[in-house]
């Protein structure tokens, strides 16, 4: 079955490269520009995975993760966040908020797919 992935990032280039990679892998991709924007997709419709940036102007990644985990429909779906190697503290914070895993920027398509494979089949 076609899997749906929600991508949340304020950077247009990141959104584009991620959605291009995922679409060419056969995923259905939804795009949110920030946390708040992303919430509109979380209306009970089917989403298999969320990939979110942490730093966003309106509702950052940590807040989004916390919000998602509160929703009955999405409390157990895998959530990956985009981060850089140096942000260990942020990583811990995101994990505590309920994230499943992370993707370190910059990444090549293979790394992105590898991370997705860890949390979703």
């Amino acid at each position: 079955m076609e899997k749906t992935i929600l991508i949340v990032d304020d950077s247009e280039s990141i959104r584009e490269v991620v959605s291009f990679t995922l679409e060419s892998e056969g995923f259905k991709v939804l795009v949110g520009v920030d946390g708040k924007d992303a919430l509109k997709f979380l209306d009970g419709s089917n989403i298999d995975l969320i990939i979110t940036d942490l730093h966003m102007p309106v509702m950052n990644g940590i807040e989004l993760i916390r919000e998602v985990r509160k929703m009955d429909d999405y409390s157990r779906i895998p959530i990956l966040f985009l981060t850089t190697e140096s942000q260990t503290a942020k990583k811990m914070e995101a994990k505590e908020a309920g994230a499943t895993g992370w993707i370190i920027k910059p990444f090549v398509p293979a790394k992105l797919i590898a991370a997705i494979n860890k949390v979703m089949r």
Partner: peptide, 14 residues
């Protein structure tokens, strides 16, 4: 571990 969306079986598979 499953609370944050992790499925340990995927890890074993991997």
């Amino acid at each position: 571990i499953m609370k944050n969306g992790t499925n340990p079986l995927y890890l074993i598979d991997e």
